[in-house]
Design a protein around this nucleic acid. Structure first.
Length: 574
RNA sequence: GCUCCCGUAGUUCAACUGGAUAGAGCACUGGCUUCCGAAGCCAGCAAUACAGGUUCGAGUCCUGUCGGGAGUACCA
């Protein structure tokens, strides 16, 4: 909890009698920072006390005495505005960060609690498309953020390695063995698309595919072997990408690993929840304003809802999770509503702890992407384009800068910057927004972008390096005269740094990495303005220099940590 | 048809969960390098789709209209 906010709340609590009503913890942030750092709105109190809000605000303001971190308390048009005393706040914040170093912002609120995060979960036998990136990077960021707050996280890559699509591929394979002498996932995807195309005019192909999948489900050894080859190949390709973007998982068990499915279906049936409709086994959810949940097809093969229910039960048995979150696109909303409902009807009270962290679709010129129709963009292509672009920028810039980075490997830098740009592009907006894929936007390295954050971080690094060479103690320059940091930008920076821990909590609470993204953008923006107007290293004023170096050192800890939590590797030079 | 999401400057997004004068990035216009990294900084332009309602107060909540998207039984 923010020390400043805490102090204001305590002050209010101690004096809660003066208002005669519960003030609660409704501290707001004034839109205009010059009015104050926090504000208490008195409008709702006005109603209860039958007095004009501005009167109440004045009353409260006149009775509260500024103390500690609070410099002033003023009433203004129905609000009580609280302003921090920078002379007291700054040393507190800076000291804390310099002492905690990379631990600043960690917390123990989640201690002893396990959170399951299901993310990425690509389908086998298809190359990873740009659409899968969102789930991957959002899940990865949430994993890191929750871990930071003390939760034990289990990252599950629930591979789409089971289902009728394999029936199609196996059917196709058996007919065209000679074409499969050598293949990759792009080829499998092509075959899959072509198969669907042919099935439009030859419906018997679909029949064949269903048969092959049924055989696979009953562990037919020939089909198992074919399936295994497809699967192994895909996993190898995925891991190449995961390594590239720095994402990992604790558990790779996919849909095929769900072995309790028949018992679970039997359990649902025993609870009297099932009925047969048009030959299929379903759970009727009419009473809950939800469409029925299909468990088994009329030919007896299982469907993915049944598999997800079984998997959820398996996960709960194994991990006794505090939350089980699914980072999956919004197009599957209905599916999650259905299967969460079935879990609830089965009597599991932990059904309420399952959450669908949905995100908007990535569309291609206004249309939904579809692997089946071959309308998709390969993730690898996007990553390569981004890397190339950042390489190009490095090569084209002025000599002073290329000298600066002469000692570092430009290949590595280009990779980190390019990939960071792609990752950040998917994390900067609220996740529920649909996005239209656009080369120009995804490759934008100016303004609110990953490279902007990286650039800011390298500036911080570069400053500290220069200071170190000039003989300053950059690692632990305390105590410093923080009262010398009196410029607007310096005070704003310290206040922002003070808000970092709660920013992490808010991101976690809302399952929303973009809250952290926006925070880092703001931090960068204020720092870059500070950098423009104030010189950090100035030997004619060593006290001021030391104070600013401590501020820069603090900023760098927070920037680096923020970037890492988003899954971006902070650079010292670029 | 039914259900759910979304409509904020030319464009891509914010707005602290109902609060004060709606903030940024691109793009455009004009500035800033004898000075710690110009992938930067400063300034200018410009917006809550429409019509009602709820209340002290609405971009945010409710109703309707228009526009866009997604889902909707044996794909995942």
């Amino acid at each position: 909890m923010n020390v400043l906010k805490n102090e204001i709340l305590n002050l209010l609590k101690e004096n809660s009698s003066l208002a005669g009503v519960n003030i609660g913890s409704v501290l707001e942030r004034p839109p205009d920072r010059t009015k104050g750092d926090y504000a208490l709105a008195c409008f709702s109190l006005g109603k209860a006390l039958k007095q004009p809000p501005n009167k109440i605000a004045e009353e409260i303001a006149s009775r509260l005495k500024p103390s500690g971190l609070i410099a002033s308390i003023r009433a203004e048009g129905g609000y009580v505005n609280f302003r921090a005393d920078p002379v007291k706040l700054l040393p507190l914040v800076i000291k804390q960060i310099i002492a905690d170093k990379e631990k600043y912002g960690t917390s123990s609120v989640g201690e002893g609690k396990t959170i399951i995060i299901d993310y990425s979960s690509p389908n086998i036998a298809k190359p990873m498309g740009i659409g899968h990136l969102r789930s991957t990077v959002i899940g990865n960021a949430l994993y890191k953020i929750f871990s930071e707050l003390g939760y034990k996280c289990i990252g599950i890559n629930y591979l789409g390695d089971w289902g009728t699509q394999f029936g199609m591929l196996i059917a196709d394979y058996k007919e065209n063995k000679e074409k499969y002498s050598e293949f990759n996932s792009a080829f499998l995807s092509e075959r899959y698309v072509a198969f669907n195309e042919r099935a439009k005019t030859q419906p018997e192909l679909l029949e064949k595919a269903r048969e092959e999948f049924k055989k696979l489900e009953s562990m037919d050894s020939e089909n198992m072997e074919i399936w295994n080859r497809f699967r192994a190949l895909s996993i190898k390709e995925f891991q190449h990408i995961y390594k590239l973007i720095g994402v990992g998982f604790d558990d790779y068990s996919g849909e095929s690993a769900v072995t309790n499915i028949h018992e679970v279906i039997a359990l649902i049936e025993n609870k009297g929840l099932c009925e047969i409709s048009e030959g299929a086994l379903i759970v009727n959810l009419e009473g809950y304003k939800t469409l029925p949940c299909l468990l088994k097809k009329s030919d007896g093969a299982t469907l993915y809802a049944a598999r997800d229910i079984a998997a959820a039960i398996g996960r709960h048995d194994k991990y006794k999770f505090h939350k089980s979150i699914y980072v999956v696109g919004a197009d599957q909303k209905l599916h999650f509503r259905q299967f969460f409902k079935v879990l609830e009807l089965m009597g599991y009270d932990w059904a309420k702890d399952c959450v669908h962290v949905e995100f908007g679709l990535v569309r291609l010129s206004g249309e939904k992407m579809s692997t089946r129709q071959g309308k998709t963009i390969m993730l690898e292509e996007v990553l390569n384009e981004a890397i190339n672009k950042s390489k190009q920028i490095i090569e084209e810039r002025p000599k002073e800068l290329s000298d600066k980075t002469a000692s570092v490997n430009t290949e590595e830098i280009a990779k980190a910057v390019g990939i960071g740009a792609i990752i950040f592009n998917d994390l900067k907006n609220k996740r529920t927004r649909d996005v239209d894929f656009n080369w120009e936007h995804i490759l934008s390295f100016d303004g609110e972008s990953g490279p902007y954050l990286q650039y800011t971080h390298t500036r911080l690094a570069s400053l500290l390096e220069k200071a170190k060479h000039a003989g300053y103690n950059t690692e632990n320059s305390l105590p410093v005269k923080t009262e010398l940091l009196a410029a607007d930008e310096e005070i704003s920076l310290a206040k922002l740094l003070n808000e970092f821990p709660e920013t992490l909590e808010k991101s976690a609470e809302n399952y929303e990495p973009s809250i952290l993204s926006n925070y880092l953008l703001e931090l960068s923006s204020v720092f870059n303005r500070f950098y423009r107007f104030h010189k950090v290293i100035n030997d004619s004023d060593k006290d001021l220099s030391n104070a600013r170096i401590a501020l820069v050192r603090s900023l760098k800890y927070v920037m680096a940590k923020g970037l890492r939590l988003l899954g971006i590797n902070p650079l010292e030079k670029m």
